[in-house]
């Protein structure tokens, strides 16, 4: 991916990454590295791993996530994140918004991709 495209993808992700983190923690409690790996596995390669931590802190401060520390076997303790009831509500709301926006954008971009005349001639 070119630098310009990467920057665009990064800007797009900025507004929805919190919902992605909420979605992943709604499946099960996860720790930071696990969340980053899950985003990567989902194809969100432009998300810088470190960028999830400020976001996790904000989500926790807003009461959408909570964290707890568990000892890992043969390793230092590990911090897990768990979604709260408020986080579940926020996720449902984010999903609705995302579907509307993504649907609208896809319809617009997809239409011009298949038939540029549709856009130019209304």
């Amino acid at each position: 991916m070119s630098a310009d495209n990467e920057a665009r993808a990064s800007r797009l992700m900025r507004g929805i990454l919190d919902a992605c983190l909420l979605a992943l923690t709604s499946e099960r409690d996860r720790y930071g590295y696990e969340l980053a790996a899950a985003l990567h596995d989902a194809g969100l390669l432009t998300v810088k791993e470190g960028s999830i931590y400020p976001l996790l802190s904000r989500l926790e401060r807003r009461g959408l996530l909570e964290s707890y520390r568990t000892p890992a076997t043969g390793a230092p303790p590990r911090r897990y994140y768990r979604i709260t009831a408020a986080g579940q509500r926020e996720l449902a709301s984010a999903r609705t918004v995302w579907r509307e926006v993504a649907g609208g954008v896809d319809a617009t971009i997809g239409r011009s991709e298949h038939d540029p005349e549709d856009i130019t001639h209304g």
């Binding site: 930071g32 810088k48 791993e49 890992a72 390793a75």
Partner: peptide, 26 residues
């Protein structure tokens, strides 16, 4: 302390998976 612990945990796992520290923190 909490942030340092979490960052160390993440970097350890990332390096074990063959990535660099800069891949995580830039």
């Amino acid at each position: 302390r909490r942030k340092a612990e979490e960052l160390t945990d993440h970097l350890d796992a990332a390096v074990a998976d063959g990535r660099h520290v800069s891949d995580v923190v830039g």
